[in-house]
Write a protein that binds this DNA or RNA. Structure first.
Length: 583
RNA sequence: GCCCGCGUAGCUCAGUGGAUAGAGCAACGGUUUUCUAAACCGUCGGUCGCAGGUUCGAUCCCUGCCGCGGGCACCA
């Protein structure tokens, strides 16, 4: 049940026919800014009063005269300059909770008009160790995919691997000059990772000028060019290396519970690039300049190059071919790119070029959306760059550390009926959850200060808090003998205390939250909700005995625990975070 | 130089054209014979960078300024 939409619908009907722009005015129904004002509030009377030349409070009276409220709301109150405060009747909430308890989607409807979303995320460079910088795209993308799917959209996830770039030249160079053949046989994944790091160590560091004329870098570039030109040996090595590279990143995805429908890397589009360039040249969208071919979107601005002087194509070319391919293959309504905000200009250029190319427009093709996110900052608050190849916290080490800490906390805190044999599982779930949540709970667009301390904190607004609340729900249900078959989901719910009523509202707000979180592409809206829900539950837990509740309240409270557990589990699942029955 | 983003409590960060700007951490104090104390309750803490403007109402929208970060032709 979407309470917000329900109220907006009611207000729209009340305003229709006499107020200007009833749609905008009804959208001014919002969650109450303070619980003492009720559950929701309508702020339309002030602006309507101005527009209609009447005192706002009088307008509020007129709205209320036309508003149908008595079946769902307490009598609405007009407050202050003309706020209309709205509070649901307990009978209504109780009825909706019963509906939710007997629905396998907790009463959450899907969207009425499903879209087809291609979501492009993660996109690591293979042959290059994954580090914390890859975390945000991976975690955000997975969460957005899960959210959209749950709401009924068709979702196609695609991992646009960097499997054809200069980093492969580095591997090829390393293979030829610094190979430990023995190690390659025994542990190919580790040997390739070692080669990459070793070769990078030999690079001249510092500014671009200083790195200019670096013989090692030049040699690596040459290997890349040979690969792109179809050099047999390099191509054979590429084919030999790829499975090992994929094995390494797949292990990380498995651990993070991240999944893709497609993994179409840059190499997949190689055969299409020449035609893209020819096409853009032919249509006069691109032109030759200083030996390269570029797209000049503005008179004075720098062009987006689609072919370099040496004949190599760029990522703009690949991305254009990818758009073309995705439209033909998937016919999406939307393509989302979950990519670092530093690439914003690239996407602006890309989308504008796609438009001129006729692939998208107001009347045709998908909506192309860059979903930007802030940089990973080091302790010095400077972005951790992937280009300089400096040691950045390795992803696996990071996850191991999180899991280790979660294990320690398990040892220090575990409840009497926790199961020691589950220690590893609990630590893994809590540790990985902590890392994911630390990322998801922040506004996507802000920079992310990398801090072990913050990531591994188990206090406050963290996954562990939600997992803990869930485990407490399950513990109560277990002790009450209320299993899947024995819980009375038809029991009538009583909202006897403020804590219970608060829980009821929280549970029923979930649909509104999921819709907002998906449409704004912001999982932190969902984390904020889960935090509120879990806090409400902790408060309930503290103040409302369940098992020792009077017989009239016991079935109701059990059902509330059950519903909270389901909301927490679903919400965390949509963030890609797992729950545990005992911790 | 041009473009993009950011500036909110000691720290890390939410937040919205609406009522008294919130949370976590830190600090301080309280709560356990009772369903998991990884918890709960409370106290302390603010010229929402500065100055104008639009508005019935601005931390939010607009303009200027200051500060910080990022991007801007052959890396992706």
């Amino acid at each position: 049940m979407n309470l917000l939409e329900l109220l907006r619908g009611r207000f729209f009907k009340a305003l229709e026919g006499w107020a200007p722009d009833p749609l905008t005015a009804s959208a001014l129904v919002k969650p109450a800014t303070d619980a003492k004002f009720g559950d929701y509030q309508a702020n339309a009377a002030m602006s309507l009063g101005k527009a209609m030349g009447k005192p706002p409070r009088q307008v509020a009276e007129e709205i209320l005269a036309k508003l149908k409220w008595d079946d769902i709301l307490e009598k609405p109150e007009i407050a202050g300059p003309g706020f209309i405060n709205l509070k649901f009747r307990n009978e209504y909430l109780q009825g909706q909770l019963t509906v939710a308890a007997n629905d396998d989607r907790i009463g959450i409807a899907g969207v009425s008009r499903p879209g087809r979303f291609v979501i492009d995320f993660s996109g690591p460079n293979v042959a290059k160790p994954m580090h914390v910088g890859h975390l945000r795209s991976t975690i955000l993308g997975e969460s957005l995919a899960r959210l959209h799917r749950f709401l009924g959209h068709m979702v196609i996830t695609d991992n646009h691997l960097g499997d054809w770039g200069t980093q492969f030249g580095i591997l090829l160079y390393g293979y030829r000059n610094q190979l430990d053949a023995e190690n390659l046989k025994k542990n190919p994944v580790a040997e390739l990772a070692r080669l990459y790091v070793e070769v990078r160590k030999g690079f001249k560091s510092g500014t671009d000028e200083e790195a200019e004329g670096d013989p090692v870098q030049d040699a690596c570039r040459l290997e890349t060019v040979k690969l792109h030109q179809g050099d047999k040996e390099n191509l054979a090595l590429w084919k030999q290396f790829m499975p090992f590279c994929l094995e390494e990143i797949d292990a990380v995805y498995q651990r993070l519970d991240v999944h893709f429908d497609h993994t179409l890397g840059e190499s997949h589009y190689q055969p299409m690039l020449a035609k893209v360039v020819a096409d853009l040249l032919g249509q006069g969208i691109a032109r030759e300049s200083q030996g390269a071919i570029g797209i000049f979107l503005t008179e004075e601005g720098t062009p987006a190059l689609i072919r370099k002087r040496d004949g190599a194509y760029t990522y703009t070319t690949t991305d254009l071919a990818t758009i073309d391919y995705r439209i033909r293959e998937f016919n999406p309504t939307d393509i989302l790119y979950v990519v670092d905000s530093r690439q914003h200009l690239h996407f602006q250029n890309l989308f504008e070029t796609a438009r001129r190319w006729g692939r998208t427009g107001p009347e045709n093709g998908p909506r192309l959306v860059h979903v930007p996110f802030g940089s990973v900052l080091g302790a010095d608050r400077k972005p951790i760059k992937t280009r300089d190849g400096k040691a950045v916290a390795n992803l696996d080490q990071l996850l191991d550390e999180a899991v280790r800490l979660a294990g320690e906390i398990f040892d220090a805190n575990r409840a009497e009926d926790a199961e020691p044999e589950n220690r590893a599982m609990v630590a893994e779930t809590v540790g990985i959850g902590a890392v994911k949540y630390a990322d998801l709970c922040q506004n996507r667009t802000t920079d992310y200060v990398f801090s072990w301390e913050k990531m591994l904190a188990m206090d406050g607004n963290t996954a562990a808090y939600m997992q803990y609340a869930y485990a407490r729900c399950q513990s109560i249900l277990r002790k009450a003998g209320a299993g899947p078959d024995t819980l009375d989901t038809k029991a009538s719910i009583h909202l006897a205390t403020a804590e219970e009523r608060n829980l009821a509202i929280q549970i029923l707000r979930m649909e509104e939250i999921l819709v907002a979180s998906a449409s704004e592409l912001r999982p932190n809206i969902l984390t904020g909700y889960l935090w509120d829900l879990a806090k409400s539950y902790s408060s309930f837990f503290q103040n409302c005995p369940v098992i020792k509740a009077p017989p009239t309240l016991l079935p109701s409270r059990l059902l509330l625990c059950h519903l909270v557990a389901r909301c927490l589990k679903l919400g965390l699942e949509l963030l890609g975070i797992k729950v545990i029955e005992r911790m």
